[in-house]
């Protein structure tokens, strides 16, 4: 009877989640009862089995499908990115009004050609729009956003992070090149320099590689020497990429 009562508490005992009284009660009992000690070992080994269950990694489909889903949700949502937060003062109302103007502007974007420059200048104050445009499904629009991002300062970490994200993950090589080019303007930031070096090591597209080689030489990033040498040594690197390295490497040495 007593044993049964104790055995019900063993899991809690092992988890350290018993009250102090119950805890010492179990401890005391275990000192003298071989039966319960055996049970304790059983429970322990069983919990061990449970805890050794490995976490399964889902297939890549999950991420792919998620990205597609997110892209299409964002495309659907884009005509109404007006902030829904309660507004506190007249300034916020102005902001809403301004963002409505922008949203309408963005909406007419496709139809009215001359609006482009106007929107670009208003965008300066509204990086959210640029951030959203950076995720647009159209490559051309993303390039537009990447180029517009030049107007921000290096303090806009959100913009810089979004650009780095484009540099690494955009499916379109032209977008990645454009992102590298814009990032070069923020090359005083160490994360930007790191990202450019990293991208040179990982990007497989030769146009992007060449762009990066030229940028890294231009910003005099000596830490890129290693990666450039690696490109030279790699048999799979096309001749014309090696040529670019040979052309630019001396300026770093």
């Amino acid at each position: 009877m007593k044993c049964n009562h104790i055995q019900n508490k063993l899991i809690g005992f092992l988890e350290n989640s018993l009250s102090e009284v119950a805890n010492s009660e179990v401890k005391e009992h275990l000192k003298s009862c071989t039966n319960c000690n055996k049970e304790l070992e059983d429970v322990k080994s069983f919990l061990n089995i449970l805890d050794n269950q490995k976490t399964e990694i889902p297939s890549n489909n999950l991420r792919d499908n998620f990205n597609k889903m997110l892209a299409s949700e964002m495309a659907n949502a884009s005509p109404k990115v007006i902030p829904l937060k309660p507004q506190q003062d007249w300034k916020s109302y102005l902001k809403v009004a301004a963002s409505i103007v922008i949203v309408i502007g963005a909406f007419l974007f496709g139809k009215h050609q001359s609006n482009i420059t106007k929107i670009a200048s208003v965008k300066n104050e509204h990086k959210e729009q640029v951030l959203a445009l950076l995720e647009n499904t159209s490559a051309s629009k993303r390039i537009l956003a990447v180029t517009n991002a030049e107007e921000f300062t290096k303090k806009d970490t959100k913009i810089i992070e979004a650009l780095i994200n484009r540099l690494f993950f955009d499916k379109n090589a032209n977008v990645r090149s454009a992102a590298a080019e814009t990032l070069a303007k923020f090359s005083s930031e160490i994360i930007v320099r790191d990202a450019l070096i990293k991208a040179l090591e990982t990007d497989k597209n030769t146009t992007v590689q060449i762009e990066l080689i030229q940028i890294l030489a231009k910003i005099q990033e000596k830490r890129a020497i290693e990666s450039m040498k690696k490109l030279l040594e790699n048999e799979e690197t096309p001749q014309y990429v090696k040529q670019q390295v040979e052309l630019n490497l001396p300026s770093l040495l």
Partner: peptide
């Protein structure tokens, strides 16, 4: 919730393996 849908990918990174499991 404020409309920055693209940020969901960060939460996806943080949670999808757990939720999947």
């Amino acid at each position: 919730a404020d409309g920055q849908l693209q940020l969901l990918s960060i939460l996806f990174d943080r949670y999808h393996v757990r939720i999947y499991n």
